[in-house]
Amino acid sequence: MKRTRTACLTAAVLLLPTAAQAHLVNTGLGPFYDGVSHFVLSPEDLLPVLALALLAGLRGSRTGRLALFALPGAWLIGGLAGLALPAIAQLLPTKTAVLTSITFLALGALVALDARLRPRLVTGIAIALGIIHGYLNGSAMSDGRLGALGLVGIATSIFVAVALAAGLVASLQRPWTRVVVRVAGSWIAAAGLLLLGWTLRPEAPRHQATSSALQQQSATARILHEGG
C-alpha cells in the first residue's frame, strides 16, 4: 500500500504540468519533441549511437544492457554540463565535426572487426561517447531554445535506439546475421572516413574554383554587355 502511494506521488510529481511545459505550446513541437527530432535527423549523433549499440549487441545481453543505461545517462550528464558551461567547447583543440567523425569512424571500425571488448570497456566507451557528444549537444543548445527538456528528448531517443539495435543484435543466432551487422559497422566507418576527409579538406581549391567561376561570370557579362 505504502509502495503504491509512493508510486502515485512520484508519478504525480513527474507528470504535473509546470511553467516550462506550458511554454512548449509556443515552441513548435515542444523542446522534448525537438530533442527527439534533433537526434533522429542528426547523422553525427545517430551514427555513433547506432555503432555503439551494434558493438554492445555483438558482445551479448550484459554488455547491451550496460550500454543501454550508460550511454543515455552519460549523454544527459554531458548535455547538462554543456548547457551550464558552453564556453569550454570553444577551447577544444579541434573542430567538433572532426571529433564526431573520428568517434563514428572508430566505433564503426570496432563493429566491422567484431572487436572482442570486455563489457566494462564497452561501457567506458559508452560513457565517454555520451559525455563528449552530450556536451557538444548541450553547448549548442545553450541559447535556451531547447534546454534541459530537449536533452531529455535526446536521451530518451538514444535509450530507444540502443534498446532496439542492441536488443536486435544480441538476439541474432546465425553466423551470417552477425556478418550483416559487421558490414553495417563498416559502412558507418566509411561514412566517418568520408566526413573526416570532407572536414579536413584543404580550403584553397575551393577559393580557386570560386575565383575561376567569378572570372567566367565576368567574362560572360562582358560578352553580353558587348553584344548588347
Binding site: 509502495r3 509512493t6 508510486a7 512520484t10 508519478a11 545481453s61 550484459r62 547491451g64 544492457r65 543501454l68 530507444v160 534498446a163 532496439l164 542492441a166 536488443g167 536486435l168 544480441a170 538476439s171
Partner: peptide
C-alpha cells in the same frame, strides 16, 4: 519491439518503474 529488446537484454525493472 522494445518489449522484445528488453527481454533479450534481460533488463529487470523495479516495481515502481514497472508500474509507471
Amino acid at each position: 519491439q522494445l518489449e522484445r529488446s528488453f527481454r533479450t537484454l534481460q533488463v529487470s525493472w523495479p516495481r515502481l518503474v514497472e508500474r509507471m
